[in-house]
């Protein structure tokens, strides 16, 4: 498998992001309780868990869209507070949301560059450099092998797979430090999914960008991820490296019943098993 192709991440690799004891409630709904995650440089971390487990809330806190009730975010060694997605993007954290955040009424190339537009100055006016953005978008999408009719068409004319591809392309265009992908394969057909998975695998091989991946298909988790964090009812119940956990074990945890205790017990069992066979991960 491709796991053989990509060597495991050096355990000494520095931690680039720590989210410590993040809690968040929405009215009466508790979304996250004291959730902590760590991400090392170049690591691909899978965030798995049932619907409503709090995965999207956690990454929306990282991206500055939500603000945590308590907890801290340490990014590149410094505590940070992202007031808006704009802040997070400016500091190199790119997110592909589940809804893709594409603007239907704008062209593909405007969608690619919204928030970091290129300008030209004409008679002292700061105008959009549409030609430059159009050419860059076309070249970039071609280089990623993404098939679209024309960068001039509005994104509402694209298929689900094309939309997803454009959103992913937009997020990796600026060479972010951290890339967050919330179910990047959800709307994709088999071939398109493999393509996006290939893009992620390429990034992983270079180890230049750290990736948080929310994904439901455990096959894909083991194919492209270094480590798994299992989130259940707003808590992390398992943190294990993919080389030390098997897909069967993960499925056992998922199937261990709906109760938190049952899942925690199964996760502990998996941990105990892996600790006896290895020196332990992070």
């Amino acid at each position: 498998m491709s796991q053989n192709a990509i060597p495991a991440l050096n355990p000494d690799t520095p931690v680039i992001l720590e989210m410590n004891r993040i809690s968040k409630t929405f009215g009466a709904v508790t979304a996250l309780v004291d959730v902590s995650i760590k991400l090392r440089k170049g690591e691909v971390l899978a965030l798995v868990g049932d619907n409503g487990a709090g995965k999207s809330t956690l990454i929306k806190i990282l991206s500055g869209f939500h603000h945590p009730d308590s907890g801290t975010i340490v990014y590149q060694g410094k505590e940070v507070h992202f007031h808006s997605p704009r802040d997070a993007r400016a500091q190199g954290i790119e997110t592909v949301y589940q809804d893709l955040a594409l603007i239907n009424d704008l062209s593909i190339y405007h969608n690619m560059f919204i928030g970091r537009e290129y300008h030209k100055h004409i008679l002292g006016m700061k105008l959009l450099d549409n030609r430059k953005m159009r050419e860059l978008a076309q070249t970039y999408l071609n280089s990623l092998g993404i098939q679209i009719p024309s960068v001039n068409s509005t994104v509402d004319l694209l298929s689900g797979g094309q939309r997803q591809s454009v959103a992913v392309a937009r997020s990796i265009y600026s060479s972010p430090t951290i890339l967050v992908l919330d179910e990047p394969l959800a709307a994709l057909g088999v071939r398109e999914g493999a393509h996006v998975l290939g893009l992620i695998q390429n990034l992983r091989r270079q180890r230049s960008v750290s990736i948080i991946l929310i994904v439901h298909n455990y096959n894909q988790v083991f194919e492209v991820c270094d480590r798994i964090n299992f989130l259940h009812s707003g808590e992390i119940v398992l943190d294990a490296s993919t080389s030390e956990t098997s897909e069967e074990q993960l499925i056992r945890i998922v199937k261990s019943g709906l109760g938190r205790q049952a899942i925690a017990a199964a996760a502990a069992e998996v941990r105990a098993g892996t600790e006896s066979t290895s020196t332990g991960g992070l």
Partner: peptide, 29 residues
Amino acid sequence: ALVLNRTTFGLHTIATGSNIVGAREIGVR
């Protein structure tokens, strides 16, 4: 017309009305 079609402000104005959640997610104020 120039502001709407050829400036960042115009682009963000369209984005705001077209998909307000998406626009916020991508960093439009």
